[in-house]
Protein backbone atom coordinates (compact mmCIF):
# COMPACT_ATOMS: atom_id res chain seq x y z
CA UNK A 1 0.00 0.00 0.00
CA UNK A 2 1.48 3.39 -1.02
CA UNK A 3 1.33 6.10 1.62
CA UNK A 4 1.21 9.87 1.05
CA UNK A 5 4.88 10.13 2.01
CA UNK A 6 5.68 7.47 -0.54
CA UNK A 7 3.77 9.37 -3.21
CA UNK A 8 5.61 12.61 -2.44
CA UNK A 9 8.98 10.86 -2.52
CA UNK A 10 8.04 9.23 -5.79
CA UNK A 11 7.01 12.58 -7.26
CA UNK A 12 10.26 14.14 -6.12
CA UNK A 13 12.27 11.37 -7.70
CA UNK A 14 10.27 11.60 -10.92
CA UNK A 15 10.68 15.37 -11.10
CA UNK A 16 14.39 15.44 -10.49
CA UNK A 17 14.93 12.51 -12.83
CA UNK A 18 13.17 14.56 -15.51
CA UNK A 19 15.24 17.62 -14.54
CA UNK A 20 18.41 15.57 -14.76
CA UNK A 21 17.51 14.17 -18.16
CA UNK A 22 16.16 17.31 -19.77
CA UNK A 23 17.48 20.16 -17.63
CA UNK A 24 21.10 19.92 -18.73
CA UNK A 25 23.60 22.64 -19.30
CA UNK A 26 22.16 26.01 -20.31
CA UNK A 27 23.80 27.45 -23.40
CA UNK A 28 23.65 31.21 -23.90
CA UNK A 29 24.22 32.67 -27.30
CA UNK A 30 24.22 36.46 -27.11
CA UNK A 31 25.39 36.65 -30.72
CA UNK A 32 22.15 35.18 -31.96
CA UNK A 33 19.70 37.42 -30.19
CA UNK A 34 19.33 41.01 -31.15
CA UNK A 35 17.53 43.72 -29.31
CA UNK A 36 15.57 45.92 -31.66
CA UNK A 37 13.56 47.95 -29.16
CA UNK A 38 16.54 49.85 -27.87
CA UNK A 39 18.63 49.87 -31.06
CA UNK A 40 20.62 53.11 -31.26
CA UNK A 41 19.32 55.78 -33.60
CA UNK A 42 21.35 56.24 -36.74
CA UNK A 43 22.63 59.79 -36.77
CA UNK A 44 21.79 61.61 -39.95
CA UNK A 45 18.96 63.40 -41.73
CA UNK A 46 15.42 63.55 -40.38
CA UNK A 47 12.19 64.99 -41.75
CA UNK A 48 9.25 66.18 -39.62
CA UNK A 49 7.48 62.92 -40.49
CA UNK A 50 10.41 60.63 -39.71
CA UNK A 51 11.13 62.55 -36.52
CA UNK A 52 7.60 62.28 -35.18
CA UNK A 53 7.84 58.70 -33.96
CA UNK A 54 10.69 59.53 -31.53
CA UNK A 55 8.31 60.90 -28.94
CA UNK A 56 8.95 58.54 -26.06
CA UNK A 57 5.75 56.64 -26.74
CA UNK A 58 5.92 55.26 -30.28
CA UNK A 59 9.67 54.83 -29.76
CA UNK A 60 11.37 54.90 -26.35
CA UNK A 61 13.86 57.49 -27.60
CA UNK A 62 13.00 61.18 -27.56
CA UNK A 63 14.29 63.55 -30.22
CA UNK A 64 13.66 67.27 -30.56
CA UNK A 65 14.54 69.59 -33.44
CA UNK A 66 15.81 73.08 -32.68
CA UNK A 67 16.83 75.48 -35.48
CA UNK A 68 17.27 72.64 -37.96
CA UNK A 69 19.33 70.44 -35.65
CA UNK A 70 18.02 67.26 -34.06
CA UNK A 71 19.01 66.42 -30.48
CA UNK A 72 18.56 63.20 -28.55
CA UNK A 73 16.93 64.32 -25.31
CA UNK A 74 16.13 60.82 -24.04
CA UNK A 75 18.20 61.53 -20.92
CA UNK A 76 15.78 64.35 -20.13
CA UNK A 77 12.71 62.13 -20.41
CA UNK A 78 11.24 63.60 -17.22
CA UNK A 79 10.97 66.93 -19.07
CA UNK A 80 10.41 65.89 -22.67
CA UNK A 81 8.89 62.44 -22.26
CA UNK A 82 5.27 61.45 -21.77
CA UNK A 83 3.84 63.31 -18.78
CA UNK A 84 6.66 65.87 -18.73
CA UNK A 85 6.08 69.62 -19.01
CA UNK A 86 7.64 69.73 -22.50
CA UNK A 87 6.07 66.51 -23.81
CA UNK A 88 4.46 68.36 -26.75
CA UNK A 89 7.94 69.01 -28.14
CA UNK A 90 8.93 65.33 -28.26
CA UNK A 91 9.46 64.20 -31.85
CA UNK A 92 8.75 67.69 -33.16
CA UNK A 93 10.46 70.86 -34.34
CA UNK A 94 10.27 72.83 -31.08
CA UNK A 95 11.94 76.02 -32.34
CA UNK A 96 8.95 78.37 -32.33
CA UNK A 97 7.62 77.07 -29.00
CA UNK A 98 11.00 77.53 -27.35
CA UNK A 99 11.42 81.00 -28.87
CA UNK A 100 8.07 82.07 -27.48
CA UNK A 101 8.50 80.06 -24.26
CA UNK A 102 5.16 78.48 -25.02
CA UNK A 103 4.32 74.80 -24.69
CA UNK A 104 1.06 75.17 -26.65
CA UNK A 105 0.37 72.92 -29.60
CA UNK A 106 -0.36 75.90 -31.87
CA UNK A 107 3.34 76.78 -31.69
CA UNK A 108 4.16 73.48 -33.41
CA UNK A 109 4.01 73.13 -37.17
CA UNK A 110 2.01 70.05 -38.26
CA UNK A 111 4.38 67.30 -39.32
CA UNK A 112 3.01 67.15 -42.87
CA UNK A 113 3.61 70.88 -43.43
CA UNK A 114 6.84 72.59 -44.54
CA UNK A 115 9.37 73.33 -41.81
CA UNK A 116 8.76 76.58 -39.92
CA UNK A 117 11.24 79.16 -41.23
CA UNK A 118 10.89 81.14 -37.98
CA UNK A 119 10.03 84.37 -39.70
CA UNK A 120 8.22 87.08 -37.76
CA UNK A 121 9.99 86.27 -34.46
CA UNK A 122 10.88 89.32 -32.37
CA UNK A 123 14.48 90.07 -31.35
CA UNK A 124 13.75 88.86 -27.81
CA UNK A 125 12.28 85.62 -29.13
CA UNK A 126 15.31 85.03 -31.35
CA UNK A 127 17.59 85.64 -28.38
CA UNK A 128 15.55 83.24 -26.29
CA UNK A 129 15.75 80.61 -29.03
CA UNK A 130 19.54 81.07 -29.31
CA UNK A 131 19.76 80.49 -25.58
CA UNK A 132 17.79 77.26 -25.90
CA UNK A 133 20.00 76.16 -28.78
CA UNK A 134 23.09 76.66 -26.60
CA UNK A 135 21.42 74.73 -23.82
CA UNK A 136 20.69 71.76 -26.10
CA UNK A 137 24.16 71.82 -27.63
CA UNK A 138 25.76 71.70 -24.22
CA UNK A 139 23.51 69.07 -22.72
CA UNK A 140 22.28 66.63 -25.35
CA UNK A 141 23.92 64.74 -28.21
CA UNK A 142 23.35 66.11 -31.67
CA UNK A 143 22.08 63.25 -33.79
CA UNK A 144 21.21 64.83 -37.09
CA UNK A 145 19.60 67.62 -39.05
CA UNK A 146 16.02 68.36 -40.03
CA UNK A 147 14.97 68.47 -43.69
CA UNK A 148 11.74 68.93 -45.58
CA UNK A 149 9.44 65.98 -46.07
CA UNK A 150 10.24 64.49 -49.44
CA UNK A 151 13.94 65.46 -49.35
CA UNK A 152 16.17 62.47 -49.85
CA UNK A 153 17.36 61.24 -46.49
Amino acid sequence: MITITGIIVLALIAYFAKEFITGGMSISNPLENSTTDSAPIVEGRFTPLSLAKFNGTDDPKILIAVKGKVYDVSNGASFYGPGGPYENFAGRDASRGLAKNSFELDCLTPTDQPIDQLKNLTADEIESLDGWEQHFEGKYPLVGTLHENGDSI
Binding site: S38, P141, V143
Partner: peptide
Protein backbone atom coordinates in the same frame (compact mmCIF):
# COMPACT_ATOMS: atom_id res chain seq x y z
CA UNK B 1 22.40 40.42 -20.18
CA UNK B 2 23.28 44.11 -19.88
CA UNK B 3 27.03 44.35 -19.39
CA UNK B 4 27.43 47.59 -21.30
CA UNK B 5 25.83 50.96 -21.44
CA UNK B 6 25.04 51.51 -25.10
CA UNK B 7 25.06 54.99 -26.60
CA UNK B 8 21.63 56.06 -27.77
CA UNK B 9 22.85 57.06 -31.22
CA UNK B 10 25.28 55.78 -33.80
CA UNK B 11 26.74 56.92 -37.09
CA UNK B 12 25.47 55.26 -40.25
CA UNK B 13 28.46 52.95 -40.72
CA UNK B 14 29.34 52.46 -37.09
CA UNK B 15 27.99 50.86 -33.95
Amino acid sequence: QEQSVIGTTRKANES
